[in-house]
Design a protein around this nucleic acid. Structure first.
Length: 808
DNA sequence: TTTAGCATGCGAGAT
DNA sequence: GCATGCTAAA
């Protein structure tokens, strides 16, 4: 295929661009001077240093609009790269809005990976692939690595597949191929690293597949070894824009530099202070080095913040200023100072969750002279996803609607991956990894041993796994139930494949030639047929685990998602686009997510719990990366604070359950770095039982002592001013509390036991009827008839047997 | 071949 | 505290 068969499209696009250029430039309205500068400097390298909330996307899209509207570039001459599909979609939408739909889509606006797939399909043969290569996800990668580990006799205890796959990923992120691995790296696991890497790549090639890292790496290789190809793209992509430049890894950096080096029309947008993806290969160095890489670069700082109040910005600046080697920015706002950051310490994690739950309800009502905030406008940002559980438990208990962002992604769910593996097997006969996944799902009596036979058969005969399986049957090396089932499966696959070639786009109104068998199926019907006939649907229908109905739901969703594609192939290719599968019921919800997931988002009210050394900053980050790790954690803190528009509440707990063990926690060092002028220390008044009608709990000794302790310290300016006072205070608080805690517990127990006895029948507003399983403090463990075992607070329970309607 | 039961180990997660 | 992955028994 000729790579440059788009010259006609080129001409058409050029016409439409000229039409636009005659029009005014409304997209420039309302830009501040810095934004405008960044938008109008079209020629040469530009680094747009865009602090949090400074209108980065606005400037970036205006710049694209400007390139088009002035006729400087045609839509297909602009290469605009993002990291996520979401960002790409948003940018596309906003450019369209700015130009009033006048531009036919920009073909080269997309994620690094999406663009590389497009390019690589044109030049696949240059790296030994066919143009229809498949893209492996992380799961396939690990599966493949496991096979290699077995073949190479590697001790998978010492070198688990996941780890080796991770190492190779890292090498690819750094653009190291097996033959140019630095000596230091080549020494990894007894110098077998390069061999294993080479074997892995060879295996990919025979599978006609590549992994995510390869998409970039192969393109870099092609650009380096085929100057003619590179030059053509350099001519083609006359203007390059990069979003989130601080997140680029070495391979992405090289790719960009190669493409840009002839004309240097590259505009990178990013914020070194928001670089939080070092662990997956991002190099802050890329953005720090920009002016060296692109001499004569214009650096524009976007510093006017349109999101947060003065206090929030000041607090964030205070924290981030402790980092070294920043490019440096000073965020400012024309807005109000607003509320100070709020800081509060709690006894333990559950206490923290309870307080935040109450606080959310209070803010929803709009207490303390503050305007009411909808739950939609509130988010809790945690460092590690396991922290979410405490909040989920609490919110379920009090019936507070919430949503979790960043759970297992739709297409990562087991049932979705299984179903897609079935589709893959049908679409591409050589997809061994997909076949391996489904061959014994549902159970067909084909275990490890049968698998091994098929593998060996395939390998010795140099055929695909599916062919190997057939050979196993033909040669009778497999017998019994397994063989019978396998025969049926292979028959099925062959049949589905023949239907695939007959399948037509859904709703296609062309005249369809009826095939000999009669009806022609759409790809959607075919998908259903595959799942039904393979027994996969039946497997979940007979499954009695509580997840099964949900999984069937998801499969229906999957089938629905097929509607927007013409065929199964196209669907498999674009499967990542169905990620946003949040079933929205319109009810306003509080959002719960990790700090990483929150980058780029904003909320009126933000809660940042768990600011404790070891948890945040994460001990592991500090152990493994030292100061670098700590600085990345600090940037994470900066990202967290700057998500808040109006209120930001930071909290820590003195005790926390870590891996099922109680640990006492030290407040985060980042708390010490919060500038005191912008922080208000909260005390939880009557927290332990007397406020909010919480009559069932009673630990006044602990609660009150802690409260007054904090208050007293906060009132004394000299103590407040002394370095590390907050840590000190928390230490004293903990020492003061550890005594009364036991006593407090006894009180609680006495009271609670008088209320609930083991085996009591109870009723809960949300979970229905159940019986008491155990009592601990004011929390009662209930085995609900419908909802399963839950921990709930006594005051939400009503005895079911005796009085029936008398609450405690 | 499957499964139940115990040991192990743990971060954030786009593409 | 829980999910994952291995070994022992059905």
């Amino acid at each position: 295929m000729s790579s440059f068969d788009d010259s006609e499209a080129f001409e058409r696009a050029s016409l439409s661009a000229r039409a636009i250029s005659a029009r005014p430039m409304p997209y420039l309205d309302g830009l501040n001077p810095a934004q405008r500068e960044a938008v109008e400097a079209l020629e040469g390298p530009v680094l747009m240093l865009a602090g949090a909330g400074t209108g980065k996307t606005r400037a970036l899209t205006a710049r694209i609009a400007h390139l088009l509207a002035t006729g400087t570039a045609q839509p297909n001459e602009i290469l605009a790269v993002t990291f996520t599909n979401k960002a790409a979609r948003e940018m596309r939408g906003r450019v369209g809005t700015l130009l009033g739909q006048a531009v036919e889509g920009m073909p080269w606006l997309g994620t690094f990976h999406a663009i590389c797939v497009k390019l690589l399909r044109r030049h696949a043969e240059l790296v030994g692939l066919k143009t229809n290569f498949t893209i492996l996800d992380t799961d396939d990668q690990i599966r493949l690595m496991k096979q290699l580990i077995q073949a190479e006799n590697i001790d998978d205890k010492r070198w688990p597949a996941r780890m080796l796959a991770g190492i190779i990923d890292n090498w690819k992120n750094r653009a190291w191929t097996p033959d140019n691995l630095p000596e230091a790296e080549a020494g990894a696991f007894n110098r077998r690293g390069p061999d294993l890497y080479a074997a892995y790549q060879a295996r990919l090639k025979t599978l006609n597949a590549c992994d995510f890292g390869d998409l970039l790496l192969h393109m870099v290789t092609i650009f380096k070894t085929h100057p003619d190809v590179l030059q053509q793209y350099q001519r083609w992509f006359r203007y390059i824009l990069v979003d989130e430049y601080q997140d680029t890894n070495v391979a992405q950096y090289l790719w960009l530099r190669l493409l840009a080096q002839s004309h240097n029309n590259i505009c990178c947008v990013g914020d070194d202070d928001q670089s939080i993806y070092g662990w997956r290969g991002a190099e802050v160095g890329n953005i720090l080095r920009f002016e060296k890489d692109f001499p004569g670069a214009k650096v524009v700082r976007l510093e006017q913040n349109y999101r947060s109040t003065g206090h929030i910005l000041a607090a964030a600046s205070g924290v981030i200023s402790a980092n070294k080697g920043r490019l440096g920015k000073t965020l400012w706002t024309e807005g109000e100072d607003g509320e100070k950051l709020r800081l509060i310490g709690h006894w333990d994690g559950e206490e923290e969750a309870r307080w935040i739950g109450d606080e959310i309800e209070a803010m929803e009502r709009g207490t303390r002279g503050m305007e009411a905030i909808s739950p939609e406008g509130m988010a809790i940002l945690v460092r590690a996803s396991h922290q979410m559980r405490a909040f989920e438990d609490r919110f379920l208990t009090i019936g507070l609607p919430y949503r979790v962002i960043g759970g297992p992604r739709f297409y990562e769910r087991m049932e979705i991956r299984d179903a897609m593996a079935y589709f893959r097997v049908v679409v591409s006969p050589d997809d061994d990894l997909a076949f391996e996944r489904i061959v014994n799902t549902p159970k067909r009596g084909l275990g490890d041993k049968a698998m091994q036979k098929m593998q060996t058969m395939a390998r010795t005969n140099g055929v695909s796994l599916i062919e190997g399986a057939r050979l196993c049957l033909d040669t009778k090396s497999l017998t019994g139930r397994g063989a019978k089932e396998l025969g049926l499966l292979l028959q099925g696959i062959a049949r589905w494949r023949s239907m695939l070639t007959e399948a037509v786009p859904a709703g296609g109104d062309d005249l369809v030639v009826e095939m000999g068998t009669g009806d022609t199926l759409s790809h959607i019907e075919l998908a259903e047929v595959i799942l039904d006939e393979s027994g996969y649907t039946a497997m979940w229908q007979t499954d009695k685990t509580p997840e099964a109905p949900g999984r069937l739901e998801n499969l229906k969703e999957l089938i629905k998602a097929l509607e927007s594609f013409d065929n199964l192939q196209g669907f498999l290719e674009h499967v990542s686009l169905i990620m946003d599968n949040e079933a929205e019921d319109g009810e306003p919800k509080v959002t719960l997510m990790t700090l990483h997931a929150a980058k780029g988002l904003e909320f009126p009210a933000i809660f940042l719990p768990g600011w404790e050394d070891g948890l945040f900053p994460s001990q592991r980050a500090m152990d493994e990366e030292g100061l670098t790790g700590l600085e990345e954690e600090r940037r994470l803190a900066y990202v967290g604070i700057t998500r808040a528009e109006e209120v930001c509440t930071i909290s820590f707990a003195g005790n926390r359950r870590v891996y099922g063990q109680w640990q006492s926690q030290m407040p985060s060092r980042f708390i010490d770095e919060l500038p005191e002028d912008h922080v208000e220390v909260l005390t939880p008044p009557g927290l332990y039982g007397h406020g909010g009608g919480m009559s069932a709990s009673a630990s006044p000794a602990a609660g009150m002592m802690r409260g007054s302790d904090l208050q007293e310290k906060a009132a004394r300016a000299d103590v407040y001013n002394s370095p590390g006072w907050k840590r000190l205070q928390a230490n004293q608080g903990r020492r003061g509390m550890s005594q009364p805690r036991d006593g407090g517990n006894m009180t609680i127990d006495a009271e609670a036991i008088s209320a609930f006895l083991l085996g009591d029948r109870v009723f809960h507003q949300k979970f229905g009827y159940g019986s008491v399983k155990s009592v601990e403090g004011d929390k009662v463990e209930i085995d609900f008839d419908k909802a399963g075992v839950k921990h709930v607070v006594g005051r939400f329970l009503v005895a079911a047997d005796s009085a029936g309607d008398v609450p405690f």
